[in-house]
Design a protein around this nucleic acid. Structure first.
Length: 790
DNA sequence: CGTACTGCTCGTGAT
DNA sequence: GAGCAGTACG
């Protein structure tokens, strides 16, 4: 039996179709828990084994670094097994230690190392390390390969500085946070400052586009990029340089994108350019030996705040596909069988998501029947809620020996909700790990150390230089720094060039000039060694010679000891990076540090209770899930409650939470909760009323607990009830008796006049994709949204 | 020049 | 509750 038919045997027919697809485009609509990661991994293995594709010609985009790491690990397992059979005629486990090591290093060298697997951000930063110097922005400016990646804090700082210092604007009228958000959105749509001005006319728009302009100038001056640029620049570069695009297009014959529903415009443009070589006419596309394979689920689209746009997924058939109806298409596969959750959990999930109007009709089909009731717990307050959850964890673990602490996840809408759970877990001495919130790389001492490293690699990085110029204190004070900064602005050269010029320093600094020159000298000395010494040695040189460690040691406080421990942790991280990475340079370490998230080192086998937001939980699964804080204003979040489309995204978020559970699901809400220090009375989440009451039971009586809520909601009908009423109304006025056709003109109460571009489903269950002028296409259920003919 | 204190504002999600 | 700007004081 060949090993390849062996792995194909583990797939259902749809998964198999996805895995065996070779050339051309394919959309895989993959519901939660339908085995899409398996399909993606096996597809890569199949391309290499069956079609002889060279791993270096495969590009796979994952949503997190963790997913990338896991996919690589799975591929290594597959190939280790296959080659063990081929070369030794045995299962891998039965080989001797030496053979195992030899084989694994061969698998790494031949398979996972040459593969390009990672997030959009990490893959793009890799492309930029090759080609960024060939890029020119709209004003002809350029970057070097040593560019820094500014994190959100750096960016906020720069923008705030521009608003308050450079442009002397009122911070209240021009909120740095809001403007940062608008600039990010503009970049994700591919808009330059000039285009931004066109989109935002009037006084405010003009000022904001000036801020955007100034911000770009700062990035260029610092030889730095923000997160959005990491994707925007390669896309622009490909648009402006045919031969560079040609190179990457020819390199990446097979492109795979996971979580396609959460891609945004620029990411789509990038994938399209790489797939089509910038050729607009589908008839000119040459798919021989090439494929573009995307996997996603519109019902799990939860990143619209990052400009993700799931209509990109809905449009795949139009953009790349054969545009045939579902039954005949060769360019779409649906994975609807769910292998993760018990039947009743799936029923609840299906029932909830049906309340959304913007979706492709898709029902998760259970493969695992039965299961315990879903428990709905009404807590008095957040402390009562945390007590219930933690008690339940202990109880379940005791009753069921198969469960360990790692089997449990507590999921919430916002990071701020974690505290009561942390406190209680701590007091019960239960191990837990918390994802999100305050990251390792956000700590002050880590950011200081990173700033030192960044200035060594990229001397133009003035933001980093300013961070550490007087940290630890070395007598270079505010006014001295100010005169340096003014001079560098005046001459339009990086601050670093002033500091390394003895005459300039002596002229500008007076008393502090000796200290300044010492500082500049010490950095220059280390800088001359960065190509010779390993990154970890550079870090240690910097920490010792800057006096940073010395200062902390002298303080001797508990806090200082903590910081020293964190710096030791950073040293570990660098050493580990050196051991694992194919390019262990300092530049690469800095890039990986910028792009890391703490989800990346969440281990499933760590026997720790997981705490995280619903966003972070995407793609994960747990035997037991607690979905907490299900109250109006918390989940759905207060900022989304008034906008119907935002509310649908909140519902998808809740859906993502429910579908994480394999065996048991607990839903909790509190009667009152402290919000920003004051007590607020909370109303149960409307999503609770959208779940079938017969599936929910009370943790103590075991009986349906939601009867009361659904009765009392008669006067104040839930959204579901309202929609049922709306459905009746449209039926009686005969709107659904109309049959829809592509090209029909319609009038929608909110969006105005539009044209039907697609029809999803048949019979009563029909959704329409409608293009309204000036906005992205909408998927609309004609039974729920009132549509008129013109 | 550096630090400690006060008072003010702000508050979703994250690569 | 935290982070930040402004201010008073050593």
């Amino acid at each position: 039996m060949s090993a390849s038919s062996d792995y194909l045997a583990h797939l259902n027919p749809s998964q198999r179709q996805a895995v065996e697809h070779f050339e051309g485009p394919l959309l895989v609509v993959a519901g939660a828990g339908s085995g899409k990661t398996r399909a993606l991994t096996y597809r890569i293995a199949h391309l290499i084994r069956q079609h002889g594709v060279d791993p270096e010609n495969i590009l796979a985009v994952t949503f997190t670094n963790k997913a990338a790491k896991e996919m690589k690990a799975r591929l290594e397992t597959i190939f280790a097994q296959v080659w063990a059979q081929q070369e030794f005629g045995q299962r891998f486990e039965l080989l001797g230690e030496y053979e195992k090591t030899q084989l694994m290093s061969k698998v790494y060298k031949k398979i996972t190392k040459p593969l390009w697997i990672g997030t959009f951000h990490s893959l793009c930063s890799r492309i930029l390390r090759y080609d960024i110097d060939k890029y020119r922005d709209e004003r002809g400016r350029s970057w070097t390969k040593k560019f820094s990646i500014f994190d959100e804090n750096d960016v906020q700082g720069v923008i705030k500085n521009i608003i308050t210092k450079e442009m002397d604007l009122d911070e209240k009228q021009f909120n740095p946070r809001t403007i940062r958000y608008k600039i990010s959105n503009a970049k994700n749509l591919g808009h330059s400052p000039d285009q931004f001005l066109k989109e935002n006319p009037g006084y405010k728009g003009r000022v904001m586009s000036e801020i955007y302009q100034a911000y770009q100038a700062q990035l260029v001056a610092n030889n730095a990029l923000d997160f959005d640029d990491l994707i925007l620049l390669p896309t622009r570069l490909f648009q402006q340089n045919e031969s560079i695009l040609g190179y990457w297009h020819r390199k990446f014959n097979h492109i795979l994108v996971d979580e396609y529903q959460d891609t945004n415009r620029i990411q789509y443009d990038l994938i399209r350019l790489l797939s089509t070589n910038g050729e607009d006419q589908p008839k000119n596309w040459d798919w021989r030996g090439r494929s573009t394979f995307v996997v996603g689920d519109a019902d799990q689209s939860i990143y619209s705040f990052r400009m993700a746009d799931f209509t990109i997924l809905l449009n795949f058939q139009e953009d790349f596909g054969d545009r045939l109806p579902d039954a005949q298409t060769q360019t779409m596969v649906k994975l609807e069988e769910n292998y993760r959750s018990r039947e009743n959990i799936l029923q609840a999930a299906n029932c909830l998501i049906e309340n959304n109007s913007q979706r492709i009709d898709k029902v998760l089909k259970p493969t695992r029947t039965g299961g315990d009731d879903i428990i709905l717990f009404k807590a008095d307050d957040e402390r009562d809620e945390s007590r219930f959850v933690v008690d339940k964890i202990l109880e379940l673990k005791q009753v069921n020996p198969e469960l360990n602490f790692g089997s449990f996840a507590i999921l919430y809408r916002t990071n701020a909700q974690s505290r009561p759970f942390e406190e209680r877990l701590l007091s019960y001495r239960i191990p837990y790990s918390i994802v999100g919130g305050f990251k390792f790389y956000d700590r002050q001492e880590i950011k200081d150390a990173i700033a030192y490293l960044r200035i060594l690699v990229n001397p133009a990085d003035t933001v980093s230089l300013l961070r550490i110029i007087n940290t630890p204190r070395r007598g270079i004070g505010k006014s001295t720094i100010e005169s340096f900064v003014n001079a560098s602005k005046e001459l339009d050269i990086p601050l670093w060039e002033i500091l390394t010029d003895e005459t300039s320093v002596q002229t500008l600094a007076g008393r502090a000039s000796k200290k300044t020159l010492q500082f500049a000298n010490f950095l220059q000395t280390i800088q001359s060694q960065i190509t010779e010494l390993p990154a970890s040695s550079i870090l240690n040189l910097v920490l010792e010679q800057s006096g940073y460690v010395e200062e902390l040691k002298q303080k001797g406080t508990e806090e200082a000891d903590n910081r020293l421990a964190n710096l030791a942790e950073l040293d570990n991280a660098i050493r580990q990076f050196e051991a694992e990475s194919e390019d262990p340079s300092l530049v690469e370490f800095l890039a990986s540090a910028s792009l890391s998230s703490d989800l990346d080192d969440l281990q499933e086998d760590a026997e720790k209770v997981s705490l995280m937001t619903l966003h972070s939980a995407k793609g994960l699964e747990f035997p037991v899930v607690f979905l907490v804080g299900l109250e109006q204003g918390t989940c759905p979040h207060a900022r989304s409650i008034d906008d119907p489309l935002d509310l649908e995204e909140e519902r998808r978020l809740c859906y993502v939470g429910i579908t994480r559970a394999q065996e048991n699901l607990f839903l909790t809400h509190a009667r009152v909760r402290y919000v920003w220090g004051s007590l607020e009375t909370k109303v149960p989440s409307q999503f609770l009323q959208e779940l079938p009451p017969e599936l929910l039971s009370d943790p103590f009586t075991g009986r349906g607990s939601s009867r009361k809520t659904s009765n009392s909601s008669q006067k104040n009908p839930s959204i579901a009830q309202k929609q049922r009423q709306a459905l009746k109304a449209t039926k009686s006025n005969g709107a659904t008796s109309l049959t829809w056709e592509v090209g029909d003109r319609v009038i929608h109460a909110n969006f105005g006049e539009g044209v039907v571009t697609h029809i999803f489903g048949t019979g009563l269950k029909v959704n329409l994709a409608i293009k309204f002028p000036g906005i992205s296409p909408k998927i609309i259920d004609p039974r729920l949204d009132s549509l008129r003919r013109p």
